[in-house]
């Protein structure tokens, strides 16, 4: 690796890894504003992580080493994914042709680890959460793959030879004026996948206290201490990783100056976090059976986008 590549890696990693919890803080702050409260400080997620990292842990006697390893594996997979996803026009440090499939694979690995840890506790609640997780993930995966393929196809025509960074780097206002309907369809599909995969309303309510209705939150009920910190930080990273894929489409301005592109992507992420806060405050959760329909819609949008682009 050359020095420039190392600097790039360091800057990217520092920014992506440091920024992630902030987005959750913004979402919570927005929701508090809607509710007429002042809300927790923006840095509250960082404080929470710090507090958890400083604690001991409690383990169920039912659990095995799988339960203890899962947070490590899940966080490692999500950190690696963070190195593969570009920040808008700012390329990712680890980019290669076809990396979008590795991103999908690493997200699947993180999910698989969490699901197994949930099954390891022998609790009815975590089992239920895991069951819903794999149910929705099976439907979200084709939508994610097809929307990224549609995007790649819409921007470049030799996409199997391109990395995510090249695809996202090729976005410009011109692509939006040329193919607005197509890009909006892709963005719609990515938004639905983003909401579902991150367990936000209308799929799941991260703030609920009723375990019967939860998905992501209920899967990690039995984790505590540093393990829980790893999992919460992983969730924050996932919100950012899928968010930046969406923002890259909706904010197609590329200045050519790396620092400016990076700043734009961060600004887009902040806006997205505010938007998520608004969605969470204004919408109600869907019935579970409706979520499957919603994800089928996401897949249909993505296929429609690709067909529109192909024809």
């Amino acid at each position: 690796m050359s020095l420039a590549a190392l600097v790039h890696l360091a800057v990217h990693a520092a920014l992506v890894f440091a920024l992630a919890p902030l987005l959750q803080g913004i979402v919570n702050r927005t929701k508090a504003w809607f509710a007429g409260r002042r809300g927790p400080p923006l840095a509250q997620p960082y404080f929470d992580l710090w507090r958890l990292l400083a604690k001991g842990a409690v383990y169920s006697t039912t659990t095995t080493v799988v339960f203890r390893l899962a947070p490590v594996v899940a966080l490692a997979a999500l950190l690696t994914t963070g190195l593969l996803v570009p920040m808008g026009g700012w390329p990712a440090p680890l980019a290669f042709a076809g990396d979008l499939f590795l991103v999908a694979g690493l997200l699947a690995l993180a999910r698989f680890a969490l699901v197994l840890a949930a099954l390891d506790t022998g609790s009815s609640f975590t089992g239920m959460g895991a069951s819903r997780e794999v149910w929705f993930a099976a439907l979200a995966e084709p939508a994610l793959l097809v929307s990224l393929a549609a995007l790649a196809r819409g921007l470049r025509h030799d996409l199997a030879h391109d990395s995510l960074s090249a695809i996202y780097g090729a976005m410009s206002p011109a692509t939006f004026t040329a193919g607005a309907p197509f890009l909006l369809l892709v963005a719609g599909a990515l938004l639905l996948v983003f909401l579902a995969e991150n367990g936000r309303i209308p799929v799941d309510d991260p703030n609920t206290h009723l375990e019967l209705t939860m998905i992501h939150e209920v899967m990690i009920l039995d984790h505590s201490g540093p393990d829980l910190a790893f999992l919460l930080y992983g969730q924050a990273l996932k919100l950012q990783i899928l968010g930046v894929l969406l923002v890259g489409v909706l904010l197609p301005v590329r200045t050519g100056v790396a620092a400016l592109d990076l700043a734009l992507a961060v600004a887009g992420l902040v806006l997205l976090a505010v938007a998520v806060g608004c969605i969470e405050s204004l919408l109600a959760r869907l019935r579970l059976a409706r979520v499957a329909q919603m994800l089928t819609w996401a897949g249909a949008l993505a296929v429609a986008a690709l067909v529109l682009e192909v024809s």
Partner: peptide, 15 residues
């Protein structure tokens, strides 16, 4: 992180 800290074992929490 867990070295030297209290690490307990108990039943599954199950809400």
């Amino acid at each position: 992180l867990l070295d030297g800290r209290p690490v307990h074992e108990g039943p599954t929490w199950d809400c």
